[in-house]
Amino acid sequence: MKNQFMQKVVCYRFSDTAAAEPPTNCYAARLMEKVNSGGCLNREDKNYITRAVRNNSFSRRGIPVMGWMFDFSPVLKRYLFSQYGQWYELCAADKTALRHAVYGRIHEIVEIGRI
């Protein structure tokens, strides 16, 4: 049974030049609606969220779109992974999405937990 008190994915404004209303026709907004309505994410969705969170420079847990931040913290977990003798921290939906988002051989993955 799913946890009925799970936190919702939120969208907030992080730029003064952003539009008055958050964008609704982007992939991140559709994923936010899907998660908030209780829908399950498929592999493509999890990979997209992980890649988008990894490749932005504004937030470690959100996806920026046109001055609005879609905060996917309830969906993400923190992982430590070892690659070429160094340890890195990354927020990802799951281990498989982490492997798809990171280029190169990963030697070890350790789950830290929910954010």
Rank of each mutant, 00 (worst) to 15 (best):
A97M: 05
R61F: 14
N47C: 12
M66L: 13
Y79Q: 08
A101F: 03
R51E: 12
S59G: 09
G38A: 07
A52T: 06
S57Y: 14
Y88T: 07
Y79T: 09
R78F: 01
W68K: 03
Y84C: 08
H100E: 11
M66I: 08
G39P: 07
H100G: 02
A52Q: 09
R51C: 12
A97F: 03
R99E: 13
W68M: 03
Q83H: 07
R43Q: 06
A93Y: 03
T50Y: 08
A92M: 01
E44R: 06
I63Q: 00
F70T: 05
E89K: 09
R60I: 15
D71W: 04
I49N: 05
V53I: 15
K77M: 08
I49R: 04
W68S: 06
A93L: 01
D45I: 00
G85R: 10
D71E: 08
S59F: 06
K95C: 07
C40H: 09
L76G: 00
K77A: 04
K77S: 10
L76P: 01
S59E: 12
K95A: 07
V102C: 02
R43M: 01
G85M: 08
K77C: 08
P64T: 11
C40D: 14
A52F: 07
T50S: 10
F72S: 02
S82D: 10
R60Y: 15
R78C: 09
V53G: 08
K77E: 08
K46Y: 00
W87K: 15
G38K: 05
R54A: 12
P74L: 09
E89D: 13
Y84S: 14
T50D: 07
R54W: 02
F58A: 12
Q83N: 04
L80E: 12
P74V: 08
Y84N: 14
Y88D: 06
L76R: 01
F58C: 11
R99Q: 13
H100K: 12
I63D: 02
T96Q: 05
V65H: 06
R78H: 08
P64K: 10
K46L: 03
A93K: 00
W68V: 03
M66N: 15
R78A: 14
D71S: 08
M66R: 14
E44C: 06
E89G: 10
M66F: 11
R78T: 09
E89C: 11
P74S: 05
R54H: 11
V65F: 07
W68Y: 15
N56I: 11
L90G: 04
L76T: 00
W87F: 11
N55G: 10
D94S: 00
L76N: 01
S57L: 14
D94I: 01
L98W: 01
A101I: 02
N56W: 05
V102Y: 03
R60N: 15
K46M: 14
K77V: 03
Y48W: 04
L80T: 10
Y84E: 13
L98S: 01
G38C: 05
G62D: 01
V65K: 13
C40M: 12
S57G: 15
D71C: 09
N42H: 13
Y48I: 04
N47D: 14
R51Y: 03
R99G: 02
E89M: 05
R51W: 04
D94P: 00
A92K: 02
